[in-house]
Design a binder for these strands. Structure first.
Lengths: 249, 249
DNA sequence: TCATCTATTGACCATTTGGTCAGAAGGTGG
DNA sequence: CCACCTTCTGACCAAATGGTCAATAGATGA
């Protein structure tokens, strides 16, 4: 299984280049940005730092606002206000609203696909599935906005993400399905459909981010709490492992 | 368990009244609309029919457009074009874009909550859960747009649906959790968290509507096919029943 | 038929919003 | 210190859009 082409480092580089194309930056800046110059200068700030800091600040704020209001519902002014920068400055760093949105998408897709390759054929599904569920729920808890933007994007036909889904994600998906199939072949689990099992894992774990509002209302909370996520992990792990006939030794 | 107040008939009436308040209609029309006058007159169309037909036409089209583009992304013009009516006419029937959206929401919430009360304490979870999963997946297949609008609404904090979630849905949810708890008490299934089991059922079945684009790409299809939904039912039913320790006799 | 109510619609408007631009301010390297 | 980048920003603008309105056409019921 050639997974070399999908090493984190390699993927990061690809995503970085992709992102650069959505940002408005000079060639010099595009180059210097790859240097890891994270100095928090106090007096005279370096141009390199200014660009880095502001870009990241804008991306952070944009993720928040996009997740709350969706692409169309988000105004550049809203992002500008939240980032405490003038609107024109946002458009100086990112050529357009669409460019900013795509940059946010590319950033978060990285996190979204991150844990799938942790499942390998040599692991026992007991640990592999458990770890995957834990990772996904943790991500729902710690990066709910990323999950929500992703969900909204897919919900509306993935106009900006189609390519990514058809390429990298699909390949990773098929690799992971292969892993599951190998577990089945080894009689480590029942012969279930790997594809639909993945759908079930994704949806049930992501719902703790995407539908948090609904869940917390139904559980009579202001927001989901640590214990709720743990119960989610517990329930999903139990049902999936036992339901797939994975020995719980 | 007093479920009388939640009979379909009663709930329909409540939803009908709620919907009337979002529409622009005269008192006379509001009354006459309750009469079931579905005549497809050929010569001189009755006012009652005109209003009914146009309202329903607009709601149907609006559901489609809202699901594709979201609330903010939808323009009244787009709905007007799709419904082949002038924009001003849409606003004659529904006072505002928000009013139309709420009317669509109220309509679809009905379908969304519909099947939960089919699970009762006297049934065995084997049949009850299986039927519920079948119903939910069928709904994902036959009314994907309703599901997507609902998902997008919750995703963005349920600004228009909060009340409905806190009221009717929550009560129904708690009733259903009670049913599951009674199954556990009878040793018909393992002691799992009813709340989180419901979350799992909802998310895994709804994903066949909400994430259809993603699923179909990953399955190398243009769109999900009959067989895919069936495999989904099969996988979810199997995993949930076995995973909850429900005897499959 | 006629007075009255309802339905239809083109023209219009105020606001919002994504995006541009010129010029000022600040950093860089020699 | 200077010539040259890069960054910053207020002022603008054109297009899109939700919503209004007055006038016309059609339906109703006595």
């Amino acid at each position: 299984m050639c997974s070399g082409c999908y090493s984190i480092a390699h993927r990061n580089q690809a995503l970085h280049n992709l992102r650069a194309q959505y940002q408005g930056m000079t060639k010099a800046a595009a180059v210097s940005k790859t240097k890891k110059t994270t100095g928090t200068a106090s007096g005279r700030r370096k141009l390199v730092d200014i660009r880095k800091d502001n870009s990241e600040q804008i991306l952070r704020v944009a993720e928040q606002v996009f997740s709350e209001r969706g692409f169309k519902g988000t105004t550049i002014s809203a992002i500008a206000d939240a980032a405490e920068l003038p609107k024109a400055n946002i458009l100086y760093y990112f050529k357009s609203k669409e460019g900013l949105y795509k940059a946010v998408l590319v950033d978060l897709l990285q996190g979204w696909m991150h844990h799938m390759d942790d499942m390998t054929a040599d692991q026992h599904p007991r640990e592999a599935l458990r770890n995957y569920i834990v990772s996904k729920i943790r991500q729902s808890k710690e990066h709910p906005n990323a999950s929500r933007i992703f969900a909204a994007e897919v919900l509306h036909g993935a106009p900006f993400l189609r390519e990514q889904l058809e390429g990298p994600l699909k390949e990773q998906f098929e690799r992971t399905c292969g892993v599951i199939r190998s577990w089945v072949a080894k009689r480590w689990m029942d012969p279930v459909s790997p594809e639909h099992l993945m759908f079930m894992l994704w949806s049930s774990t992501q719902s703790y981010a995407d539908f948090e509002v609904q869940s917390s209302i139904l559980l009579s909370r202001d927001a989901l709490e640590e214990a709720d996520y743990n119960e989610g992990v517990e329930l999903i792990t139990r049902v999936v492992l036992k339901g797939c006939g994975v020995s719980l030794v």
